[in-house]
């Protein structure tokens, strides 16, 4: 079997006395989508921040290509090819596509003693990169990020990560704020990234989206790895039950008195739980 691109072995993370991650072991291979599922507060954000070098694990080890790595800062993880794309994609709404694409790694040319930001190259490269992912509506690198739709922003952010040689793509709830159509665009791009041989870690609490692209699933509950299974091993209902903390969704629904056919998102369950 191939050596996993990224592997966690017995990773723990606590903030003072509060244990957030407890003995997490995970692997993700190239060309594979790992879906990280979990309710709010399950430790998903802490886990991806640990992978991205924002937090250092309290104990446990991280391996890349079988080699032990220690990330002191986010840049270390980025240099190793770990790229995180956040819920709202581009975070600079008032910057142009070309400028924000190259933040921190601006293409330059020299005219005499002056170093010049090469706007033409920046725009052309950014537009080409995102069009290769099938978003052909983006054709003007001078457009502001804030003028793009949520799905376009996500796509641009993913294209950016791939362009800069990302090997592991961490997507933090990319579809959470999107409509059905926009979300399907993003899922298509996730598939495209997978086809190009990237290891993708896809964080979501929408089981439908996870099932659409995932090869491998991990469910986090209160900082512990509650389940770790491959595609086809569990049904949608089973996964939802797991995410709701191992309780039976049907039972919960009966308690609420709704008993509706539609799939409840865990957030709803939690809210009604608290009542």
């Amino acid at each position: 079997m191939a050596v996993p691109v990224l592997e966690l072995r017995n990773v723990n993370k606590s903030f003072g006395p509060i244990e957030v991650l407890n003995d997490i072991s995970l692997k993700v291979n190239a060309g594979e989508v790992l879906c990280l599922l979990g309710d709010n507060g399950a430790g998903k954000s802490t886990l991806i921040k640990t992978l991205a070098g924002v937090h250092k694990p309290t104990s446990g080890e991280i391996f890349m290509d079988g080699e032990k790595v220690i990330f002191e800062r986010p840049k270390d993880a980025a240099d190793r090819g770990i790229a995180t794309v956040h819920q709202f994609g581009g975070t600079f709404p008032l910057m142009s596509i070309g400028r924000s694409f190259f933040v921190g790694v601006e293409p330059t040319k020299r005219i005499g003693p002056f170093t010049i930001f090469d706007r033409k190259t920046a725009n052309a490269t950014a537009v080409k990169a995102v069009q290769e992912f099938g978003i052909t509506r983006i054709d003007d690198g001078d457009r502001l990020i804030g003028g793009l739709s949520g799905g376009e922003r996500q796509s641009l952010a993913i294209a950016r990560a791939v362009h800069f040689g990302a090997r592991v793509l961490i997507l933090d709830e990319p579809t959470a704020a999107l409509g059905v159509k926009q979300a399907s665009h993003v899922l298509r791009i996730v598939n495209e990234a997978k086809k190009r041989g990237l290891a993708v870690i896809f964080i979501t609490h929408q089981v439908m989206h996870a099932l659409a692209v995932g090869d491998h699933f991990a469910v986090l509950i209160r900082g512990k790895l509650a389940a770790n299974f491959m595609k086809g091993e569990k049904s949608r209902e089973e996964i939802t039950d797991l995410m709701a903390g191992g309780e039976d969704m049907a039972e919960l629904e009966a308690q609420i008195g709704g008993g509706s056919e539609e799939l409840h998102s865990p957030a709803h369950v939690r809210a009604s739980d608290a009542e």
Binding site: A52, K75, M95, R99, S100, V103, G104, E106, F114, T115
Partner: peptide
């Protein structure tokens, strides 16, 4: 507007945390 540093200034004002993560 001409040097690449200008891009960094815009990025810091847009989102300091992301700018830092981008290596600025």
């Amino acid at each position: 507007h001409v040097s690449p540093k200008g891009n960094w200034i815009f990025a810091i004002g847009g989102d300091r945390e992301s700018a830092r993560n981008a290596g600025i």
